[in-house]
């Protein structure tokens, strides 16, 4: 029982660290990029309303930041879509297989 348990537990931990901590981090990179890209249009303030000294990005830099932000958000959304598929497929007696790296719906 215990070897089985440890085997399942570390798999859950590994998957959850990658998805549950990695995705919020990626999302934060996206949010940060958008915030910095927007710094050109007005001063940034921190939680207490104090101004943060961030040099406004050049227009090229601003576009780059926005693209980075979009890429991060799209990646997060794609992961959420896979998560939804796992929930829904599970309900219909199917499972999502990651054997071919790309997720595929298979019979349970």
């Amino acid at each position: 029982m215990f070897p089985l348990f440890l085997d399942a537990a570390w798999k859950v931990l590994l998957a959850a660290v990658v998805l549950g901590a990695g995705l919020p981090a990626l999302f934060a990179v996206g949010v940060r990029s958008f915030a910095l890209a927007g710094a050109g249009s007005g001063p940034l303030t921190d939680d207490d309303g104090r101004a943060i000294a961030v040099s406004a990005p050049t227009s090229g830099g601003s576009t780059g930041l926005r693209i980075l932000g979009v890429v991060c958000v799209v990646l997060v959304l794609a992961a959420v879509a896979v998560g939804l598929t796992v929930i829904i497929a599970g309900g219909f007696g199917k499972a999502v297989s990651f054997e071919n790296v790309f997720p595929m719906i298979v019979d349970k």
């Binding site: 859950v12 998957a15 959850a16 901590a21 998560g83 796992v86």
Partner: peptide, 13 residues
Amino acid sequence: ASSAAVILASSHL
């Protein structure tokens, strides 16, 4: 996000 990931990963496994 952690809750969602842990719940989904464990029900998947």
